[in-house]
């Protein structure tokens, strides 16, 4: 390619950050072009808005027992009906979106931070440090997720903090492994070795040279973790190990509604539907992200 009208002096180039943003914007416009991913995005944004504006949207408080309104079928007054105790199910579902989003978001963020740091370090360092840490991570991974969560919550007790801690412990090894394998493919590239040859510090190499290269893989993995974390949080709630009453937890709402199914079937339908919609949305979105970033291969 021939140089076109070279300017006399260099103008400042866009920084890595603004370049990263451009890439994120690019990813968004890619998503907008895929109908299924767009549906996913819309669903996810819808639930986020619901969670943020819960006090505005919900007509009642989540644990407010409305006198004389128990066991009511959906109506204009109570769009999702009321449960056995007379609580407005619509309000409970709206408030419930806060936990089902907040806990997975926190766990995803934390396990990305921890997992990426571990993965970057062991992938770059290699040698015996890598093989020992990798082995421990593999062993942790060989305990089925829900099982470990069960054991830990049985002993630590259920609280939002406990649930987050458990899921982070479960997901950090997975993220670390994904990061590590991406690092292995860039570790011996010329630019990383050039950084070593000019005596850059470990931190600089890990976070300035390697991190941008593994970022696409991390974004894809983050979306996947988020989707699984929602799944897990809902399952824990269903097993009665989620956030404790009275705060509304979709999984627990489903479990409680099972017993009264013959009387108030709507109290089962709506939380189940909410879980289904949210998970479908997140799955469609994360699948879209995966296809976008895998195809581009080279990264942001």
């Amino acid at each position: 390619m021939a140089a076109t009208n070279p300017p006399a002096t260099p103008v400042p180039a866009p920084s890595i950050v603004s370049r990263g943003w451009r890439a994120v914007r690019g990813a968004f416009s890619e998503i907008a072009r895929r109908p299924l991913s767009l549906i996913g995005l819309v669903l996810v944004v819808f639930f986020i808005v619901l969670a943020l504006l819960a006090p505005v949207i919900a007509p009642y408080n989540f644990d407010q027992i409305i006198r004389g309104a128990a066991r009511q079928a959906p109506s204009a007054e109570h769009v999702f009906g009321t449960d056995m105790l007379g609580r407005d199910i619509f309000s409970r579902v709206v408030y419930g979106s806060r936990e089902i989003l907040a806990i997975p978001a926190a766990t995803t963020a934390l396990s990305l931070i921890f997992g990426a740091s571990i993965g970057l370090f062991i992938g770059f360092r290699g040698g015996w440090v890598d093989s020992i840490i990798s082995r421990v991570l593999d062993a942790l991974l060989s305990i089925p997720a829900l099982l470990l969560a069960l054991v830990m919550l049985a002993t630590v007790g259920s609280s939002p903090g406990g649930i987050i801690a458990v899921i982070v412990l479960l997901y950090t090894p997975i993220v670390a492994r994904v990061t590590r394998s991406s690092v292995l493919s860039v570790r011996s590239t010329g630019y990383v070795e050039a950084a070593r040859l000019r005596g850059e510090s470990l931190g600089y190499i890990l976070f300035q040279e390697l991190l941008p290269a593994v970022l696409p893989a991390l974004i894809v993995e983050g979306a996947l973790r988020f989707s699984y974390a929602i799944f897990l949080t809902a399952s824990l709630g269903f097993l009665g190990l989620g956030v404790q009453p009275p705060s509304p937890d979709w999984g627990r709402m489903v479990n409680e509604a099972r017993d009264s199914f013959r009387i108030t079937p709507w109290s089962l339908w709506f939380p189940t539907g909410a879980i289904a919609l949210l998970i479908i949305g997140v799955n469609l979105l994360s699948d879209g992200l995966r296809r976008i970033f895998r195809r581009e291969g080279q990264g942001l």
């Binding site: 269903f238 999984g251 489903v254 879980i275 998970i279």
Partner: peptide
Amino acid sequence: VVGLPEFV
């Protein structure tokens, strides 16, 4: 459909 939790 298929990606939903087992209890759903």
